[in-house]
Amino acid sequence: MAVKNLQIQPLSVPSTSAVDFGAQIDNVDLENLSDADFETIRNALYTSHVLVLKNQAGVSPNAQYELTKRFDPAAESYGHGKILDAKRSVLHPDLKTIPTQTQVQVIGNGFYDEYEGLKDFTLKHPHHKVFHKDAIPEEDDLEYTRFYRWHIDAALYALNPPKVTSLMAVKVPAGRRQTLRYDDGSGEELDVPLGTTAFVSGQNMYNLLSEEDKKFIRALSRLFISLMER
């Protein structure tokens, strides 16, 4: 069987969009990922910031973990060796752990008979009203939504997340869409599919800052690194 070369192309975005990051990669075999192909993926990620690996249905939790670990070999477990106390974590209502690959968590909505060793379990997708002081009124809740919360990988605090996060779309909601309200006073809205995960570019946000604010951020970064090294 002929080996297909990886094909990389920028993500397709509407002509009205200012998004200038993200790429799609085709012909990736995560179950048998060569060093050369991983290096291609690694370079693409650090160039494009977000990657979509197409046609990965059926990829095992182990392959997903191994891909994530190759970006950060020190990431042996969920949180670099610290244990996630599921009963006390703010993430507990949202996640279920894969028994055979405990670094991989499942998020979704509804009851499932079985998935990767989990049996007879219920997932509840987070809703913005449990995280915001002012929620969308009940009469508008079906048609409209808001971002749930802002996070960088996860709210783990003392648990250091891996350098790279991987999300595996096993099954995505189909059919209707929703209008996302920013509700920040701007009146901006965004047409989104159900279960949307939004990505933003920290690089672009930094570039939008004034020179004074950039200097302040660089000083904070040096302070954070210094504290982490102690």
Rank of each mutant, 00 (worst) to 15 (best):
V59W: 01
V3F: 07
I83P: 04
T179E: 07
R176Y: 00
G79V: 13
K214H: 04
Q105C: 09
L227M: 11
I152W: 07
E211L: 12
Y182G: 03
L91A: 10
T68E: 11
E31Y: 02
V90D: 10
H151E: 06
F121C: 03
L67R: 09
E76C: 14
K69S: 03
V19S: 08
A219Q: 14
T97C: 08
T196G: 04
L156K: 05
T100S: 15
P193E: 02
E188K: 14
W150N: 12
F224K: 09
Y65T: 05
V13I: 13
P126I: 11
L142G: 06
N109S: 12
I98F: 11
L53M: 01
E212C: 06
N207S: 12
A198R: 00
R88H: 11
L190D: 10
S186L: 02
S186Y: 10
K96I: 05
G58M: 12
I136R: 00
K69Y: 05
L123E: 02
F199M: 03
T16V: 14
D184E: 05
D183I: 05
E31I: 06
L118F: 05
V19T: 15
R146T: 01
G79E: 11
L227I: 10
L33D: 02
V52Y: 09
G187C: 09
A169C: 13
H125E: 02
H49W: 09
I41Q: 03
A169L: 15
D37V: 08
T40H: 06
L190W: 12
A158L: 10
A135K: 12
R230A: 05
N5W: 04
S186R: 09
F21P: 07
A135N: 09
V13P: 01
H125Y: 15
T197M: 01
N32M: 02
K129N: 10
P14W: 02
P99A: 04
E76I: 12
A155N: 05
R146L: 02
F131C: 03
P161W: 06
A57M: 11
L220W: 12
T100F: 13
A18R: 15
L6P: 06
N5G: 10
L123S: 00
N27D: 11
L142W: 03
K171H: 10
K215D: 15
T165Q: 15
I8Q: 08
V28T: 13
T16S: 15
Q56A: 00
Q105P: 03
F71E: 01
G202S: 12
G195R: 06
H128R: 00
L91F: 03
L194Y: 02
L84C: 08
K4W: 02
E116A: 14
A174H: 13
